[in-house]
Amino acid sequence: LRGLNLSRQDDGSLLVNALLLFGVEGADPLSLERKRVEAALEAERVVAYLRGKDPLLFGTAHLAGVAPSLYIRESRHLKALYRLKAEEVLLGRTFPDAVALGGYPLDGQVYFPGETPYLLGTPAPYGVPFRSLVPRELRNLLVVSQAAGFDSAAAFSARVVPLQMALGEAAGVAAALLRKAPQAGLTKVPLADFHELAASGQALEALRKRLAQRGARLSSPEGGRVEVERPGYREAVVLLRRGLFAGPYYLKGSLGLSEPVLLGDFLANLEHYYRAKGPEERLRVVLKARELFREELQKPLKRLTLNQLLQALGEGRLSGADPVTRGEAALLLYRLLP
């Protein structure tokens, strides 16, 4: 059970988004159905828990039903003509064939029970290229969903419904353009398939023009801050793509390499890696550090604390003055998390 997302309906009922299910195979119908049944049973226990926890608010609550299908946050991703990358999302990259804008935070849900939730940062507004909807090996299909051509970490942001609605509209307009449908209101261009559309500057211009006429936002005056010259940039990008470079909400559109790294963010990166890859001994060290320093998790990481942690992990000390920057953290994490 995670934090409750509650939505009160006009009839007085509440929609609750709170359960996390692990071990689901998103492409296996039997796995999906088993987990849906498991979720329905767990929902009964959740309602009973809420009644006992807050009788004033939930004292008369009962379970009215559960969703007919699971929300699969992530499973397979399309091998598209273009794969949207995590740093392009965070740093607000634009594309000449962008057909929608995104900007939702790169929030990473947990992959294991008991894992610490984490955030990779808040993007500057970024464009999603039309090519990310076009399969490499199928020429007459567009894919719009969490399964489109996104890197796993990029999908932390690009998965959300508002952006997918915009991409769905773009796909529909593109299909109308390809069929030369009069209702599309677009210049006729002789195109055989979506690969040709993606390669045609004239067709893409017509597509973007039509989307803009329909009210789509395809650009933003806001931009990200690229720090390619700062130490740790290359390492930070590699870590970000792997979901291992956590950052606070306030670092919008930036890797923040010159900013202090927060203790909680640094430990989160280690925890996510060691839970997935091991060794167990290092995970225990990280979890113990979270417990010992829980009052300091949202504060800049002190070099003394870092060196105590490194010593417990069997690593050498990191010299220098406080605070430990995110650039230094990137260089260190890149070495610690191969």
Rank of each mutant, 00 (worst) to 15 (best):
L1N: 13
R2S: 13
R2T: 11
L4K: 10
N5D: 12
D11V: 00
G12V: 05
L15I: 11
A18G: 15
A18V: 14
F22G: 02
V24M: 04
V24Y: 08
D28H: 05
P29K: 08
L32N: 10
E33A: 13
A39C: 12
V46C: 01
Y49N: 07
K53E: 14
P55R: 11
H62L: 10
A67W: 12
P68V: 00
S69P: 00
I72A: 10
S75R: 00
A80K: 09
K85G: 11
A86F: 06
V89H: 04
L90D: 10
T94L: 06
A100L: 01
L101R: 06
L101K: 03
P105C: 07
G108H: 12
Y111C: 03
G114N: 09
P117R: 05
L120D: 10
L120A: 12
G121I: 02
P125S: 06
G127D: 01
F130C: 05
S132T: 11
L133K: 06
V134D: 10
E137L: 14
L142R: 06
S145E: 11
A154L: 04
A155V: 02
V161L: 12
E169H: 09
A171G: 13
V173S: 02
A176G: 14
A176N: 00
L177M: 14
R179L: 13
R179A: 15
Q183M: 02
A184T: 08
V189G: 06
L191A: 06
L197G: 08
S200M: 09
G201F: 05
L204E: 01
L207Y: 04
R210K: 14
R210G: 03
R214H: 01
G215S: 05
S220F: 00
V226T: 12
E227L: 01
G232V: 05
Y233L: 01
R234G: 12
A236Q: 04
A236S: 11
L239D: 06
R241D: 14
R242H: 09
G243W: 04
L244Q: 10
Y249T: 03
Y250S: 14
L251D: 11
K252A: 13
G253N: 04
L255V: 09
G256H: 09
G264K: 03
G264C: 09
D265A: 10
F266Y: 15
L267H: 07
L267Y: 10
L270V: 06
E271H: 05
H272M: 00
R275P: 02
E280C: 02
E280F: 13
L283E: 11
L283I: 07
L287R: 15
A289W: 08
L292V: 15
F293Q: 13
F293Y: 15
E295T: 12
L297M: 09
L297S: 02
Q298M: 00
L304P: 00
L309A: 02
L313K: 07
G314E: 09
S319D: 14
G320P: 10
D322F: 01
P323K: 06
G327P: 05
E328Q: 15
A329Y: 03
A330T: 06
L331V: 10
Y334S: 15
Y334M: 01
Y334T: 02
L336E: 09
L336V: 03
P338R: 15
P338Y: 01
